[in-house]
Amino acid sequence: MLGDRTGSPGGASDVPLAPLPYQVRSVVRETPDTATVAVVPRGSRRIGPTRPGQFVMLYAFGIGESPIGVSDETDGVLYHTVRDAGRITHALTRLTPGDLLGVRGPYGHGWPMEAARGKDVVIVAGGLGLPPLRPALREILRDRDAYGRLEIVYGARTPKDLVYYAELQEWRRRADLRLQVTVDAAGRDWYGDVGVVTTRLPDARFDPERTVAFVCGPEIMMKFTAQALVGRGVPAESVWVSMERNMKCAIGLCGHCQFGPSFVCRDGPVLSYGELAPRLGVREL
């Protein structure tokens, strides 16, 4: 069961925790503080193939490493959407084509694509939660008939915080999925919905008992969203969330990412809400 949730934890490197040299191919500015960086190996060695929802450690030479989700992998090019949140991510968002960086991974268990086959799929993303969900979405679109209805709800703080603007337009035009975009607050120039993501869920159409939901965003958003989905009748075990914790090693050895019994890096980052629900109610766990 869930055979596709296994990753290749060691990565391609035989040196413990050592990154492989990669190079920036292109950079797309998504928002004032967020950029999508496309990277390719700077040599003959590359990390193994990634699965939707897995992450890597991106290394800014001389500065350090951060766990960053994979937002796409196409023809050997890895895409990462990074928000400038501090020293390392600042350096990563400042990269320009040709620049050097390091990559190790891929790590963790991603979205349970196998469990979603034949089911309605509800994807709920909050803010930078969309990038780690994009590979799952693309995989579904590549094999669209293998899944039931596809509902996407994407919320951001304001319209200018929305990432993948062009792709959103494209998804919006498709007849084989429904996309709802909402923002927490907007000016008069925004004609879309306003309200936190959970306000859009009642409008999502799916058969709760035959639904698998993938949720990624800030923890509080995932908690409210999962509660709302369960309230609609989706089994808690069918709601999957991608957890975030401080990570140093990404291979279950440094202890930093513990969330109760789970090592988020190794057992997650995607975990079932059914398993997590009691823990999400405990403060400062």
Partner: peptide, 17 residues
């Protein structure tokens, strides 16, 4: 209750990462 909850959710800033 839903409006109140949504306001509360908005207040804690769903997107504070």
């Amino acid at each position: 209750a839903e409006r109140l909850e949504n306001t509360r959710v908005q207040l804690v800033d769903l997107h504070a990462r």
